[in-house]
Amino acid sequence: MPIRTLVWGENVHEQKNKVVADNYPEGMHNQIAKLLSSDSNIVTKTTTLQEPEHGCTVEALAETDVLIWWGHAAHGQVQDEIVERVAQRVWEGMGLIVLHSGHFSKIFKRLMGSPCALNWREAGERERVWVTSPGHPIAKGLPPYFELEMEEMYGEPFSVPDPLETVFVSWFQGGEVFRSGLTYRRGAGNIFYFRPGHETYPTYHDETVGQVLRNAVNWAYNPNTYPGLLKAPNVPVGEALEKIEERGPTLHQGREGFR
């Protein structure tokens, strides 16, 4: 079965900024989907902030194996209810790839449980992205490093939890470095944060960036989901694996527990 991938785009800058519109006349989300299309193992759909329920309806997420998220100007406009819905799907096993300024998105901060803050500078600097884990599936087929001629600088410290793996580290012309490719697992869901992708530069027209994204989708995909991870069921004494006798007082008269 192909990996059902939903590309979520904020779709704000494309409507208001001519430079961004010229870079991405069909929207950043559609260009990202185009980069994924060369992998026959991936089927893509796109949606945006402006769609009902931001395009993240219960039905849409149920049919999504991997969600790609790009946001910047309108993080605060994403409804908290939708954030919780996405988080629950990640806990169940849906993959999540967060791009560039999505580090400040509600969903990434929710799953990281940290400020996700960093230093930045928009000056069109060259970025050299070093592969620090050459054996990682996300780095498959990549050279030891690749360069983006113009990008926004992100610099350390990056206030996120320690990752499972650091796949990429970036160097910028101004001298800063940044952990630009990080993996996490929350519940049963695989998460990858990938730094490049500032909207005023043509980053998502770069074929190496496309290779990273295709690799990331294949890595983040989990063929199994585990909705039971969201539950906290009571196990009655009579259903214990080993025979036991109930003793001592209990607070849970209805056996449902406090939530």
Score class of each variant (00 low, 15 high):
123 A>N: 15
57 T>C: 05
92 E>I: 07
128 R>S: 05
98 V>D: 04
88 Q>K: 13
89 R>N: 01
106 K>N: 13
130 W>Q: 10
110 R>N: 08
81 E>K: 14
97 I>Q: 04
144 P>Q: 08
69 W>V: 15
148 L>F: 02
55 G>N: 14
89 R>S: 01
65 D>G: 12
140 K>A: 15
155 G>C: 02
108 F>D: 03
100 H>T: 04
127 E>P: 00
69 W>E: 04
132 T>W: 00
72 H>R: 10
43 V>W: 03
47 T>S: 12
45 K>G: 11
141 G>M: 09
161 P>C: 02
162 D>G: 01
141 G>I: 11
135 G>T: 09
64 T>Q: 11
79 Q>M: 11
125 E>F: 11
117 A>N: 13
109 K>N: 06
113 G>L: 03
80 D>A: 14
123 A>K: 15
115 P>N: 06
91 W>C: 02
50 Q>V: 08
74 A>F: 09
29 H>P: 00
126 R>D: 01
89 R>Q: 12
59 E>P: 01
126 R>P: 02
59 E>W: 08
142 L>I: 11
132 T>E: 06
114 S>N: 07
133 S>G: 00
41 N>W: 04
96 L>V: 02
117 A>G: 05
123 A>V: 14
111 L>V: 10
126 R>W: 00
56 C>F: 15
44 T>S: 05
58 V>F: 03
98 V>G: 01
45 K>N: 12
162 D>C: 01
75 H>K: 09
55 G>L: 11
100 H>K: 07
98 V>W: 00
90 V>M: 06
86 V>K: 05
77 Q>T: 09
67 L>G: 03
127 E>Y: 01
77 Q>F: 05
96 L>A: 01
103 H>S: 08
156 E>Q: 12
114 S>G: 02
76 G>P: 09
119 N>M: 04
29 H>K: 09
160 V>L: 03
110 R>Y: 09
56 C>L: 15
136 H>I: 04
